[in-house]
Structure formats: structure tokens, C-alpha cells
């Protein structure tokens, strides 16, 4: 059984998104993480705990530090202070490939599709440890049928929604313990958003642990189990998605608007 709590970090005095499962340590833990990009101090003491299993939504206004948090976890930005641990291992100082090899997959905000490569070649590259597992590939292609249709087409010729599907398919072609997905519905048509929502539900059903940044609150509400809200480079709220979805006043306080108005 899962329990969600909001605690105050003894190190930073900020709230920590703390979701423990039967007393087990979290899969991912950020403790007082600071990140600087050039002269800008973007993350200012992020405390976040992600339990194994379930989907944690990372919400917040533009510029709150959500994408920087994802990129810092992946080692794409350097941690200036604080600590990130994954399954008990310290990630600070590791290079991005070594972090990825710890079974963390990342779908960036830009999707990172190799447009000059075919869909098949994108998938072949994502299967880093060897040939693609046929059963897993079949499952993915059933999840995203358009990828099969355009299997040998250049990925650069896909539509935005299809590119996003490829980006997610690439991230799950090898089993990952943690999946970081950054704004998967950005700029997509409502019909595609529906398909992606269903796909993410299925991913959850297979036990994937997911940390997702999302601006589409209908999707966030539909798939999120727990939520952490960021503002000015810090976590300012942590709790269950259901609680936030029901509390209009809290939504307006944290996000500046209510979810109902944005569906």
C-alpha cells in the first residue's frame, strides 16, 4: 500500500515530495539539489522522492525548474550542490551515459528524434544492449501502430504526435527502472493526447516508475498518482494527484489557475 506525505527538509527547510511504499526507500531521491546554468541559479534546493512504481507528476509554472530538474537527474546539467541518489547509488558527478546505464530512460522536451534516421534505426539505437526483444517490440508497436506503418520512413518526416510516440517507444524498448518524460503532449492535437494518455496508462500498468512533467492538466489528472509542484526552483507542494485535483483553492494558490479551467 502506498502512502504519500509532505515533509519539511531538515537541510533546506523546503517541502519534500516524499512518497514511501511500505517503508521501502525511494527509487530516486533528490536532496537539496542546486543547479546553475551559466550565471543563473535555476534549482535552489530541490527535495524530491520518487517511490518505485506509480507515476509522479511534476507541475509548475513556466520557468519553475521542471525541465532543469529532469536534465539534472540525467546529468545533462551539473549538480552545483546537494545529492541525487537512484536505488541507493549516488548519481552526482556521473556522466549522462553512465546514468542512463543505471536503467533511467529520458524523453526530453524536444523529443530528441534523429530525423535523418528511419523509425527502425531510431529503435535499433535505443536498444543499446543488443537486438530488440521481439515480444517487447510487438507490444510497443501495438501501443503505437503508426510506428509500424512508418517503420522504414525517415523519422524527420513523422508528425509531431508520431515523433512523440517514437520518443516514448525508444525510451521503453529496453526495460527501464525509471522513465523521465518531459511534456509529452506539448503542441499535440487533442486526439493524439488521448492516445498518448492511454499509452502512458498502459506503461503504468506494466509497473513502470515514471516521473513526468506535464502542462496538460487533464492528462496529469488522468494518469498521475502523486504530484510535486515546483516554483522558483523549489518543490513547494507534494501530495496525491487526487487531492490536488479536488482542491481548486490549492490549485490556484500553487499554479495560478484551477485545473477545471484548463481542461
Amino acid at each position: 500500500m502506498s502512502r504519500t506525505a509532505t515533509e519539511t527538509s531538515p537541510r533546506t527547510g523546503h517541502q519534500t515530495a516524499s512518497h514511501t511504499t511500505n517503508g521501502r526507500p525511494p527509487l530516486l531521491r533528490l536532496s537539496g539539489v542546486h543547479t546553475h546554468i551559466a550565471q543563473y541559479h535555476i534549482l535552489q534546493g530541490v527535495d524530491l522522492e520518487i517511490p518505485e512504481g506509480g507515476l509522479t507528476m511534476l507541475l509548475g509554472r513556466n520557468g519553475a525548474g521542471k525541465t532543469t530538474t529532469m536534465r539534472t537527474i540525467m546529468g545533462l546539467w551539473k549538480v552545483s550542490a546537494g545529492e541525487i541518489t537512484f536505488a541507493g547509488d549516488r548519481l552526482n558527478g556521473l556522466k549522462t551515459p553512465d546514468i542512463a546505464r543505471k536503467s533511467i530512460a529520458h524523453v526530453p522536451e524536444t523529443m530528441g528524434i534523429f530525423g535523418g534516421l528511419t523509425v527502425r534505426e531510431n529503435m535499433v539505437l535505443a536498444a543499446r544492449t543488443g537486438p530488440m526483444d521481439e515480444d517487447r517490440l510487438r507490444w510497443i508497436l501495438d501501443l503505437f501502430p503508426s510506428l509500424e506503418k512508418f517503420w522504414n520512413a525517415p523519422a524527420g518526416a513523422l508528425s509531431g504526435g508520431q515523433k512523440q510516440m517514437l520518443a516514448i517507444a525508444r525510451a521503453v524498448i529496453e526495460p527501464a527502472r525509471l522513465l523521465l518524460i518531459d511534456e509529452p503532449t506539448k503542441g499535440l492535437a487533442p486526439a493524439i493526447v488521448g492516445a498518448l494518455t492511454e499509452a502512458i496508462r498502459q506503461l503504468k500498468g506494466f509497473g513502470a516508475t515514471i516521473l513526468m512533467v506535464e502542462q496538460n492538466f487533464a492528462m496529469a489528472k488522468a494518469v498521475g498518482d502523486t504530484v510535486a509542484v515546483m516554483d522558483s526552483g523549489r518543490i513547494v507542494h507534494a501530495g496525491s494527484m487526487a487531492d490536488l485535483a479536488e482542491d481548486t483553492a490549492l490549485q490556484e494558490g500553487l499554479l495560478g489557475f484551477s485545473m477545471e479551467m484548463h481542461q
Binding site: M74, L76, K95, T96, P97, A100, R101, H106, P108, G112, F114, G115, G116, L117, E121, V124, L125, A126, R128, R170
Partner: peptide
């Protein structure tokens, strides 16, 4: 070859190649 794929992908987006776990 997979090395060739990596080179072509790296020319496009080296950061993403690293995110997939390859030491570029």
C-alpha cells in the same frame, strides 16, 4: 552498422545519443 548509426545520430544530436547510454 551500429557504429555508423551512432555516427549519423551523433551528427544530428550528440546529447541524445548520450542520453541513450552511449559514451560518445
Amino acid at each position: 552498422t551500429k557504429i555508423g548509426l551512432l555516427v549519423r545520430a551523433g551528427v544530428e544530436n550528440g546529447e541524445m545519443v548520450e542520453t541513450l547510454g552511449y559514451r560518445i
